[in-house]
Nucleic acid binder design. Structure first.
Length: 175
DNA sequence: GTTGAGCGTT
């Protein structure tokens, strides 16, 4: 049986047909625009997105191309798989994941790097279900979050904030 | 124009 945390991922070696194809082995210099140029030959596109590394902002070398029609996706998979693009042989197949995950709230929600170890059930929530059900309220109940919240703002921060807003003088604009 | 194998948290 498939584990819960892999439930949103399908069969990797033989993905079910769907309107989205994954494109792998891309050159770092291939842009979404390049991909549009190539893949729109097979039918109208709903979206194209390259996956970027969060820190370096470089392409991770793969992308997802969404066709409006599943048939065009199939066509693209058959015709573009193995084709050369920007000097790289690309692999094209139906996507096994459905979409990007829901963006994180911008605060660390993973395992604390100190303190008692928790079982994976306690922190490995899928964000896909949205903040309201999965992440947020449960997160606020965790002790490491409370200890973070309890901290009073540092005087340094308040000073910096004040001086910045004071330096912003108001001058009416003339036309 | 750092390889290469890769299924996504702008």
């Amino acid at each position: 049986p498939m584990s819960n945390r892999r439930r949103h991922i399908g069969n990797r070696t033989n993905p079910d047909p769907n309107g989205c194809v994954g494109v792998f082995g891309l050159s770092l210099y291939t842009t979404e625009r390049d991909l549009r140029d190539v893949f729109s030959k097979y039918g109208p596109l709903a979206d194209v997105c390259i996956v970027y590394d969060q820190q370096s902002r470089r392409s991770r070398g793969f992308a997802f191309v969404y066709f409006e029609s599943q048939n065009d996706a199939k066509e693209a998979k058959e015709r573009a798989n193995g084709m050369e693009l920007d000097g790289r042989r690309i692999r094209v197949d139906f996507s096994i994941t459905k979409r990007a995950h829901t963006p994180t709230p911008g605060i660390y929600m993973g395992r604390p790097t100190y303190g008692p170890r928790r079982s994976s059930r306690d922190y490995d929530r899928g964000y896909d279900r949205g903040y309201d059900r999965g992440g947020y309220d449960r997160y606020e109940e965790r002790d490491y979050y409370k200890s973070y919240k309890r901290r009073s703002p540092s005087p340094y921060y308040r000073g910096a904030y004040r001086s910045r807003s004071r330096s912003r003088s108001y001058s009416p604009r003339r036309y």
